[in-house]
Design a protein around this nucleic acid. Sequence first.
DNA 1: AACGCAAGCAACCGCATTATA
DNA 2: GTATAATGCGGTTGCTTGCGT
Length: 210
Amino acid sequence: MTKKMVEEENKYKKGLWTKEEDNILMDYIKVHGEGHWNLAAKKTGLKRCGKSCRLRWMNYLSPNVKQGSFTEEEEDLIIRLHNLLGNRWSLIAKRVPGRTDNQVKNYWNSHLRKKLGFKKQNSNLGVSGLTNSRTVIVSETPITLSPCCNTSKAIEDEASISLQKFGKASDSQESEIIESYVNSLWDYSESNLEFSTPDGVLGWDFFDFA
DNA sequence: AACGCAAGCAACCGCATTATA
DNA sequence: GTATAATGCGGTTGCTTGCGT
């Protein structure tokens, strides 16, 4: 390792944030607002990179972040959203008020995955091809669900058609489609749901996004 | 009391995407 | 159109804490 590389590595502090660092960052954001994290890192004199400042604010310091353990309602919501979206933590977090993607991800990995008997898996579910099958593809044993609701199916079909229509959609287009799809499905599912499964393991509607 | 182990979580890393010059 | 910087995301790491022996 060259001297320059060592210098570069020592430029920024790593590890847990101290109370003092938190206060410095909060004071800065109170005055200047969020954003421009690299500038914030420089101006505050914190030996942290902009990325680290952003993460600290987003995941811990922001008044919008809810601390403490997850409620049953939140847990329920996360499970349902994960079944719809896969490991798209930021999308899931947007729908769990006060929770960050990191919180949701940690909670899923440390509590829910175990609880539900999910295998560890690399998944980028949720985007590249809605199918008409209703299969849980991330559980130990795939569960095929019987389609029992025309409205839900219609919403799913519409999302599928939209995605096909765009062909190779850009990420933002795709996100938009998924967003509206989830909204529709979510609104719908709030008032309905309880799909039957052959073994009764899970009681909601699942879609195979693979 | 001391040790080892596992769980939980904060933070880091690498990559992708978006914005700006 | 291209290069560079900034931001966002998801996977992973490693420290802390609690529990069992």
